[in-house]
Design a protein around this nucleic acid. Structure first.
Length: 110
DNA sequence: GCCATGGCTAGTA
DNA sequence: GCCATGGCTAGTA
């Protein structure tokens, strides 16, 4: 078993808690994990750990409410997965945050 | 060194 | 469009 840094442990727990049919944003996950400016670190976690840890990477989008992955490099997959879970996504990858945003709760423990 | 951000400006219309 | 920001995995040796 590998030992993970505290921020990573918290971020992973939060990511796993994102419900089907909802989305979170990189920045909100980072903030809830204890680092309001750690959005890019969340990106790194998703990029490097999604496969091994089966993280719901597709449920994380940017603060503007759009899919961040480039077309041809995951964009279409993410859009399809979200739609399959009931999230309305425009062809351009826009999600209505008012309707679908899930706000991670600040982690006091873990 | 990596990374799929975020937020704020300048410069246009 | 620009650039400051942050925390550190996976995979090999």
């Amino acid at each position: 078993m590998r030992t993970y840094a505290p921020f990573t442990v918290r971020a992973v727990a939060i990511l796993r808690a994102i419900p089907r049919g909802k989305v979170a944003t990189y920045g909100l996950v980072a903030a809830a994990a204890g680092s309001p400016l750690g959005a890019r670190q969340v990106v790194r976690i998703l990029n490097s750990m999604s496969r091994a840890h089966r993280l719901p990477w597709h449920r994380v989008i940017n603060s503007r409410g759009t899919i961040s992955l480039p077309r041809g490099l995951g964009f279409e997959t993410q859009r399809a997965l979200l739609r399959k879970e009931g999230v309305r996504v425009t062809d351009d990858g826009e999600v209505n945050l008012k309707k679908y945003l899930w706000r991670p709760r600040l982690q006091d423990s873990v």
